[in-house]
Computed example of a mutant assay.
Amino acid sequence: MFTGLVEIIGTVSALVDLDASTSGGNGTSLTISDCASILNDAVLGDSISVNGTCLTVIELSPSKDYFKVGVAPETLRRTNLGRLKERSRVNLERAVLGSTRMGGHFVQGHVDTVATVAAVTPDGNALTFRLKPREKEVLRYVVEKGYITLDGASLTVTNVNDAEGWFEVMLIAYTQERVVMASKKAGDEVNVEIDIVGKLVEKSVVGYFEGTTKEGAPAILEKIVGRLVDEKLKATQR
């Protein structure tokens, strides 16, 4: 579990393609450097969010100034990690401790989709990013003023257009200096994790309707709305 508050920006210092016997099928090993400040208490098997993707530390340098992770083929398909190159910069965050302040929101490190930057618009010293997700259905969980995780950074949604298939976030000057998002340009990709609360609520509501009626959710919703309207009308006639 993570908070979406990026601790440090690391640098990819090596990429090595792994064979099937090592990775489960054509995965990649990433070595990430320039991150000694978050490795002082790290051990093998720890989880670290790399651009919003929860990965397991499989190797630590003796001096703890770099670490290595393995990226499985499924992860490469679902994220932008397969597009990293040597010297690419990545957002890093360690898994939370029980005493950590939750300044961001609950982030799993499980990427839902990849979004393409459609436009970057300056607004004073801030930057507004318009993003179009690859899987448009995730937009039903994206709401204005709600949380969203982009490359592991917890950000606030400032605008959503379901019909055109995009949403926007704004980076203030402080945030621009601390996340890789600030260097993104139109056409670049970012990892997207939707706030899990929305997905849990949807599943609970749908499960309740399916478990209590054979008519399905639309029919029972219509009945609920009809009952509320009837009660309102009766109240106004008294």
Results as ranks from 00 to 15, higher is better:
Thr28Gly: 03
Ser61Tyr: 02
Asn91Gly: 03
Ala14Cys: 14
Gly103Val: 08
Val69Cys: 11
Val120Asp: 02
Arg178Val: 15
Leu18Ala: 11
Thr22Cys: 06
Phe209Asn: 00
Val201Pro: 01
Ser23Ala: 14
Ala36Asp: 10
Leu84Asn: 05
Thr175Tyr: 13
Met102Ile: 15
Glu202His: 07
Thr236Asp: 07
Lys68Met: 13
Lys136Glu: 04
Gly207Val: 08
Asp34Gln: 12
Ser29Glu: 13
Cys35Thr: 09
Asn91Asp: 03
Glu137Lys: 04
Gly165Lys: 01
Ser183Leu: 02
Ala182Glu: 04
Glu74Gln: 15
Ser49Asp: 08
Val225Tyr: 06
Val6Gln: 12
Glu210Gly: 09
Lys214Trp: 06
Gly152Lys: 00
Leu92Asp: 15
Val69Arg: 02
Lys214Ile: 10
Lys132Leu: 03
Gly25Pro: 06
Gly25Arg: 07
Leu60His: 06
Ala173Ser: 13
Gly109Ser: 09
Ala219Gln: 09
Ala20Trp: 04
Val179Thr: 15
Ser29Ala: 14
Ser88His: 13
Asp188Glu: 08
Arg94Ala: 08
Val160Asn: 02
Ala126Leu: 05
Phe67Glu: 03
Thr75Arg: 00
Lys136Tyr: 03
Asp65Glu: 10
Ser23Lys: 09
Tyr66Asn: 09
Val50Thr: 15
Val90Ile: 13
Gly109Ala: 04
Val179Asp: 07
Val201Gly: 07
Gly207Gln: 15
Ser23Pro: 13
Glu231Gly: 10
Thr121Met: 05
Val6Thr: 12
Leu200Glu: 14
Leu39Gly: 14
Gly104Tyr: 06
Leu15Asp: 12
Arg178His: 15
Gly25Thr: 03
Asn51Trp: 12
Leu171Glu: 02
Cys54Ser: 12
Ile194Gln: 00
